[in-house]
């Protein structure tokens, strides 16, 4: 940690997170919007999988706090959700790394589902019950998006030799 060799690539990681944040606050038609995956969660999962010593629970928590501000939700709501995703990924990164892509997508979807249920639960407590079952859709969108996110980010990581 901290040596010249391991501290490269922070720019790339930061850039991918900025793009993910932009994608998650882009205005979309409601039909697509319902399935919009949690882009920040997906990118966080990738980096926690690839660089578990550098991107982890703390990164997820800070990103969640930023997302809470950007989306006007309770401060700490997404922070808890993304910290959970990061923790699960770091916890199981050695297993998930060797999975084939479709199996990876399933585990990522289950992490995202846990995050979503946590966030929905918190919303319910604070007086915003979801009202319908559509809140289950974004993790499914995340599952479909994972292979593409994985391939794009892996190529970027190899191109810029971040490890």
């Amino acid at each position: 940690m901290g040596s010249i060799e391991t501290s490269r690539g922070y720019g790339l990681v930061l850039l991918t997170f900025v793009v993910a944040l932009m994608l998650s606050s882009l205005h979309l038609p409601p039909v697509i919007d319902r399935f919009r995956p949690d882009w920040v969660g997906l990118v966080l999962t990738y980096w926690a999988l690839a660089l578990p010593n550098r991107v982890g629970v703390g990164t997820g928590w800070v990103l969640g706090l930023i997302q809470d501000t950007a989306q006007g939700t309770l401060l700490g709501q997404h922070a808890l959700g993304l910290a959970t995703v990061a923790w699960l990924t770091v916890r199981f990164h050695q297993r998930i790394r060797v999975f084939p892509l479709w199996q990876q997508a399933l585990s990522v979807a289950s992490f995202l589902m846990i995050e979503q249920l946590l966030v929905v639960w918190i919303k319910g407590i604070t007086g915003y019950p979801p009202g319908d079952w559509w809140y289950l859709a974004p993790p499914l969108g995340g599952m479909l998006a994972w292979p593409w996110v994985f391939i794009v980010l892996r190529d970027l990581r190899r191109r810029f030799q971040v490890s």
Binding site: E5, T6, L51, P52, N53, R54, G56, V57, G58, W61, G64, L74, L75, G76, Q77, A79, L80, A83, T84, A86, W87, V90, R91, H93, I122, T126, S163
Partner: peptide, 28 residues
Amino acid sequence: RQSKSLFAPETAASIRYALLALLSVVLM
């Protein structure tokens, strides 16, 4: 190269996670 010890990231992450989860609840 990045995982110098086999168990270090998991344990450290778990402790950090517990602390940050607590902090999130307090913040909320």
